[in-house]
Every structure is written in structure tokens, then in C-alpha cells.
Amino acid sequence: MNTAPKYSPLQMFIHWLSAILVILVITLPLMKGVLADSFGGMGNLFMIHKSLGVLIFFITICRIVVIIRQGVPEVLAKHQKLQRILSKAVQGMIYLLLLVLPLSGYLMSSRTISFFGLFTINGLNLPASLQSFLHSVHIFSAYLIIALILLHILAALYHHYWCKDNVLRSMLPIK
């Protein structure tokens, strides 16, 4: 019998869905020269990028609600205080950035967002200086979340291959 702590199936689903969506939303602008024609031009490519950002924002809110309601398993031993602090700090920063990135992306542009062509979210007409600042926040946050996600992945692999503990398995739907 496996007694290692596991995240709930809902938490696992939200985690892996978020991971896929974040990879897509980061990849689209980086691959714009290659992908623009495949998606019918830059306008469609950025419509998808913005739609994914809106989706990530709302999934992150749901994720936070699920965490508040269900809690999270203690996958690191109590005596691993520094690792526990670092883990919580990195996860907390990732959650914060999953909110800041879509918000700054929305606010930096006064354009209306078409959410996958289903409905629109009206843009806000903010001063150019504020839009410029929010653009800088958006770009800085994008680089920061990439670094934190890489750190998160490396930590999971470190635990799986070096420590040989159940940290990575706690977020996998397999036993």
C-alpha cells in the first residue's frame, strides 16, 4: 500500500492543464515568425495568446480556491525546513505571476480581447505611460516565470532522481 501523500485528482488536473497552457502562451509570441501564417496572421496568433492568458487567469483563481478548500499534502519532510520554505516561495511566486501576467497583458493594451471568438472583453484606455510600464511588467514577469518554472522542474527532477522521494510522484496521476 502506498502511503505517500498525493495531491487530489482535481489539483493534479489543474496543475497539468496550467502547465500545458503556460507553455503554449509563452511559446506563441516566441514563435510568431514561424506560426503566424499557420494561424492566419499575427492578429489571430495574438488573439489566441490573449485568450490563453484569460483562461490561465481564471484557472489560477480556481486553483487558489481549490488549494484553500482542500489544502495541499505535505510532500517534504518536516525537517527539510529550507526546502519547504523555498518550495512554498517558488510556488507562491508562480501563482502570483499567473495572475500578474494576464492582468498586465490586458491592461497594457487598450484593445478589446476576443476570447477564442466566443465573447469579447472590452479594453481599458489607460495613459500611454501606464501602458508602457505595464508592458515592462508583463515582459519582466514573463522572464521571471520562465526562470521559476525551470527551477520548479529542476527541483522536481532533483527529488525524483537524486533524493528518490515521492515529491514528483505526488503530482502524477500514476502510482
Rank of each mutant, 00 (worst) to 15 (best):
A4M: 10
Y7M: 03
Y7D: 08
S8A: 05
P9L: 13
L10T: 15
Q11E: 12
Q11D: 09
I14S: 00
A19M: 06
A19C: 06
A19W: 02
I23S: 03
L24H: 06
I26W: 14
I26T: 13
I26P: 07
T27K: 06
P29W: 05
V34N: 01
V34E: 02
L35R: 00
L35V: 01
N44E: 05
L45E: 02
L45C: 01
F46Q: 04
F46R: 06
F46C: 04
H49Q: 06
L52D: 06
L52I: 12
C62R: 00
R63D: 01
I64C: 02
I64L: 08
V65M: 00
V66M: 00
Q70M: 09
G71I: 11
P73M: 05
Q83L: 07
I85F: 12
K88D: 10
V90P: 03
M93Y: 06
Y95F: 13
L96S: 15
S104V: 14
S104P: 15
G105I: 15
G105K: 10
G105H: 14
L107R: 11
M108S: 07
R111E: 15
S114V: 12
S114F: 11
F115P: 10
F115K: 01
N122S: 15
N125W: 08
S129M: 12
S132C: 07
S132H: 12
L134Y: 14
I139G: 00
F140L: 10
F140T: 12
Y143G: 15
I145W: 05
A147I: 14
A147L: 10
L150C: 07
H152G: 00
A156H: 04
A156K: 00
A156M: 04
A156T: 04
L157W: 09
W162C: 09
N166V: 12
N166Q: 13
L168D: 14
L168T: 13
R169I: 09
L172N: 04
L172M: 13
P173R: 05
